[in-house]
Amino acid sequence: MKRVSINSNTVLLLITIGLFAAMYAAGCVIYADKGFSHFQTFLNVLITNAGLICVACGMTCVMLTGGIDISVGSLIAMDCMILAYSMGVKGYPCVPMLVFVLAIGLVFGLVQGFLVAYMEIQPFIVTMAGMFFARGMTAVISTAQLSITQQSNPQYYAWANAKIELPAFLGYMNNKGAVIVPFIRPTVVIALAVVAIIFLVLRYTKFGRSLYAVGGSESSAKMMGLDVRRTKLKAYVLSSFLCSIGGICYSLNTMAGAVQQAKGFEMEAIASSVIGGTLLTGGVGNVIGSLFGVLINGTINTLVITNGKLLSSWANIATAALLCFFIILQSVFALIKERKK
């Protein structure tokens, strides 16, 4: 039997998962009367954060190479605006528009990746320009708040409101005696599929392994014969593409397009990746951690909303405190590692 080796990275991942479980359990105990313990609450966290999960996966891939992509929030806003404008206002069919949005993600990533990898400009600056560009383009399309309604696009509306029901024993009885069956939206399936695929890609494919190699040490990767530039380019393309998938999930969730949508999303995605154990210097991290990072983020928000009395800024402060906790934990582990050497 193969023994699972326990190193500091798996410990960090376990702590992340444990913390999520503890936080959720605490929520169940404190807010038992407000329905926090229902399985549906957990599913709602997944539903509202489906877009963020996709984005965090892409962000993790970029961060593995030692880069960063802060254009994601604006790109999501642009995707949502394109979808809302084309389907809500113009009444175009959905499938071509979804393909169009995905193509935009690819092109966006290609340009950013080319500038980072082949022009050797700092990723922060390149993706910051991307952030300005996408946010501005959103305003160029429309500055009004647009929405997609059942009249303007019945099929998209049907997709957004489709319920995938889970087995009934997971549900609960309401006070009228009817069984409420828990459900998820199609976006959750998309997001979890993305996590699974990226997990497998990072672990078992040549591309995935070269992401780690490039992030670990660029010069060693080059000496091993890896095409560092192409790997970086692919990472940025992947990030923007996943971001577009996330944008579609986000759009299905909100059914609207507005200039200020998904503001600060990039920082939430980065924070989720860091809480999940990804290092900004590159070479360390995986998407399972990022998934739990997003879930922790979502749980904090849900807790604050369930309380009802707290100001929303408490959610930010809690996230910052958690970030602080995990960052110090990571650096302590790094110090222990160095001592052992």
Binding site: M267, V274, I317, I328
Partner: peptide
């Protein structure tokens, strides 16, 4: 002191400082 990457270290106050100001 803790040798944390600058962007991540300042991400903490990026999230918290404005929220504390609001409070």
């Amino acid at each position: 002191k803790l040798k944390i990457q600058p962007m991540i270290a300042t991400l903490i106050l990026f999230t918290a400082a404005r929220a504390v100001g609001l409070l």
